[in-house]
Each structure stands twice: as C-alpha cells, then as structure tokens.
C-alpha cells in the first residue's frame, strides 16, 4: 500500500491515489489534493465533498444522478466545480474510494 503526505500528515492511498482509510481525511488535506488536480476549493466545493463523504459513510452508492438529487448542486454545476471527470476527482478529494458505479 502506498502512502502520501498531505498538509504534513501521512495518509494511506491506493495506486490511483484514492484514500484507503477515509478517516484520515481533513479539510486541509482536501485542499492539497485539489491543488494537485488543478482545483482551488471554494465553500461550494466543500459542501459537495462533505455530502459525498456523508453519502459514502451511510453506505449508499454514488452516481451522477444522486448528485442531481442531492439538493446541493445540480449536475451542470458539479461538472463546472470538478472539470473533466467530476465524480472521480471529487471522490479523490473527498478522501473516499473511487465509485464503482456505471451511472
């Protein structure tokens, strides 16, 4: 298992850079991962990230559709906040595993 240092903290990640232990995550760590992905986190980003973490903790599957129904952002804004591959990027920054969903 690989390890990475973010914001002075050593965290466990898999070979793609996703956290293997989501409890090691902090807001400061998120900001540094986001910088690696070329994103400056705003309060809106954090709202999405925290929603993703909550959803992950409750064991519910993550899909692009669930974002639309989150009540936090619509899908268009989600794509703007995390350009490129939004669900992959957002979960990486949120310190949770990469979603295995096809939708």
């Amino acid at each position: 298992m690989a390890q990475k240092v973010y914001a002075g903290v050593t965290v466990d990640v898999n070979e793609e850079g996703y956290f293997t232990n989501p409890s090691q995550w902090t807001r400061e760590i998120a900001a540094e991962i986001a910088k690696e992905e070329g994103i400056d986190l705003t309060e809106q980003h954090y709202q999405v990230i925290e929603w993703l973490r909550k959803r992950y903790e409750s064991g519910e599957a993550l899909s692009i559709r669930s974002i639309n129904k989150s009540g936090i952002v619509d899908v268009k804004t989600f794509y703007q906040l995390f350009p490129g591959a939004p669900l992959k990027k957002a979960t990486k920054i949120a310190g949770i595993p990469k979603p295995a969903s096809c939708v």
Partner: peptide, 10 residues
Amino acid sequence: EFMELITAGG
C-alpha cells in the same frame, strides 16, 4: 433525465 445528465456534462 439521462439526457439531461449527459447534456449537463457537455
């Protein structure tokens, strides 16, 4: 709804 998601993403 699927098409809404697809077009919202570009």
